[in-house]
Design a protein around this nucleic acid. Structure first.
Lengths: 194, 194
DNA sequence: GTCTATATCATGATAGAC
DNA sequence: GTCTATCATGATATAGAC
């Protein structure tokens, strides 16, 4: 028995997520219509509702799976806090540049989440920040870093690293490896591990 | 001769700008309706159009005057590059905390500007960043700082400093002076001026 | 300068055919 | 699973009275 007209359930779902992420990041959640997403996917607007109950659930899904992926991807290693910090810096930059749209969404569209959904994302974000805080604390304890305030330094460093997505362009003046080196130099100095 | 009904031209203009800034920052440009702004001001939606030709012009006006104010407020001083850098750090943090909504808008709603309007804001932003780059270059020339890449370091530091608006809450654990100290410590280390 | 009323259009979401 | 058609709502912006 042949499929019904134009059914492509296997690829439509991921496509909706991809296009929604791209459009939300470029124009903002509120500025993007369901018709616009549907058009980018190549279906009619009504078809989207076979995959998501509503627009808000689509946003939550994008943010939540990004944060889950981020948490799952980072594997700390035992040993020298300085080596762990360098790995974190390069990991965070690489991941941010691999998923610039998701990173942008994560910082910009939290306010468009319902309070309950916001709490879920904030919790995931806190767990990620705690990974960096742990490294900094260990570095201080080992006498290898000098840090006035671990919590503030965590937030400051993450803001600095995430900022690469604001200006990085593929094929630009600096490649990723070089960017990682420069930022690692800044971070190493900031924690007085020169 | 008495004024016509409810006319308050002297205060309505600034009020519209204040409320629009507040609402745009909290909900996003696209998510805020002209009715919503009017309601916050205490007039009907139609009255807004006596002050702005349209919603886009209102956004441009807010962003442009914020950047102009920022540029006008920063006065560099001759002398020790390190002292100049410290002043810049404290200035940027204080200004960001004084105008958190405008700072947020400046980073967030550029994408909702028309290309022409975007170019105007980007130009102002570049001029501001150039102020910091100049200090860093002087610091390197004087042998007081070690910086791999002045342009990148400029962007990294500004992203870090601006990040305070993401978590700062009036009356929180740390006051502004202490925050300034901590960030200055991070910056001083990052440029190897320990 | 502000109000009321309205023109025009786009939106999120749903119903039912296939 | 997708389409077409549609409902109900709310958007920007304008016109004309006061």
């Amino acid at each position: 028995m042949a499929r019904t007209q134009g059914s492509r359930a296997d690829i439509t779902g991921p496509l909706i997520r991809d296009e929604a992420l791209r459009l939300f990041a470029r124009q903002g959640y509120a500025a993007v219509s369901m018709r616009q997403i549907a058009s980018a996917v190549g279906v009619q607007a009504g078809a989207l509702y076979a995959y998501t109950p509503d627009k808000q659930a689509l946003l939550l899904d994008l943010l939540e799976s990004h944060m889950q992926e981020l948490l799952a991807a980072w594997k700390d290693i035992p040993g020298d806090p300085l080596a762990r910090l360098e790995r974190f810096v390069r990991f965070h930059i690489d991941t941010s540049l691999d998923h610039p749209d998701a990173v942008f969404l994560s910082y910009m569209e939290l306010r468009n989440l319902t309070p309950e959904n916001f709490a879920r994302i904030a919790d995931l974000r806190n767990r990620y920040e705690a990974r960096l805080s742990a490294i900094l604390r260990d570095g201080v304890a080992a006498g290898m870093m000098q840090i006035d305030d671990v919590k503030l330094t965590t937030l400051a460093l993450i803001a600095m690293l995430t900022g690469v997505t604001n200006w990085y362009r593929e094929g630009g003046r600096l490649d990723r490896r070089r960017i990682g080196e420069i930022y690692w130099g800044l971070v190493r100095g900031a924690v007085r591990a020169v």
